[in-house]
Amino acid sequence: MASRAETTPGGAPPAAPKKSLRALVPSRARGNLADQVYGTLLQGCGLILPLLFGFMILQIGREAWFAVSTFGGGFVTSSSWNPVSGEFGALPFIYGTIVSSFLALAIAVPLSVGLAIFLTELAPLWLARPIAFATELLAAIPSVVYGLWGIFVLVPFLRSTIQEPLSEALGGVIPFFAGPAYGFSILSGAVIISIMIVPFISAVAREVLEAVPRDQREAALALGATRWEMTWHVALPYALPGIIGGSILGLGRALGETMAVTMVIGNRPDIPVSLFAPGYTMASVLANEFAEATGDLYLSALMEIALILFGITLVVNVLAQLLVWRVSKRGGQA
């Protein structure tokens, strides 16, 4: 705030400067003070997220402590889940979560990479844009709507078109297809998760494929490679770290999917070998039983499951972030 040196109209001398504390501080320093306050406030804002995160861990951990101390390590190895008798073992849920998520990944990654290759290499613009838009739309659909569709459309379809024929034909030979075709099963859970994570994996795959330098592609083609050979030998290897990072991100989402999975997986705390049998995931048991949990041990056991789920998704997401971060750094160097 510069001092006003000009005279007021009429020739009167300028008014004497106000005698205040602020006037004693030179103007440059005053700007600095405001900036310092601003800077400190901003740093404080930065603390919000880590504090919130830490608070989250604290709350859940505190509630889970009872179960942790009661069951110890046996919690993750025991497969009996019996709220009535007080036996709580998380193994069925860990099993269901891991099997459904990895199966979903096995379905989603080839589809996503195929889609990405189609969009970057093959599709003309008039086709690529609507398909890309459609893929993004898939990401905007709420989980519960997927679940609704899953119950009334996907499950009956899977049961009659895939499970029944396969279980009849190969059920005796391949244990994964054995047993009655339940419909509401681990397979349905995996399929619906895979549909939900394809947009994320393919978005990353598309980005890294588009970043493959043109002259690398041209070098291969000029040597007489077919388009597919060029894609397989040159473009995909170049894009591989990014695709892996995207896949791990997809895995992270798959592990935490709740509503759609709960609505189609059957919710039976078993460890079935057959994919056609019902299963149960950690997220699903929380969704189903938390509101009705009676008794401190029951509640705490569910809390411990929440803690385990939290931990697993944490590790997977950090891994994915590090990979994606590494890939983007390398892209800048290339």
Binding site: P213, D215, Q216, E218, A219, L221, A222, L223, G224
Partner: peptide, 13 residues
């Protein structure tokens, strides 16, 4: 493209 080879402006190994 096998019969007609190409060397590019900027080397691209």
């Amino acid at each position: 493209r096998r019969r007609v080879g190409m060397v590019f402006q900027k080397s691209n190994p």
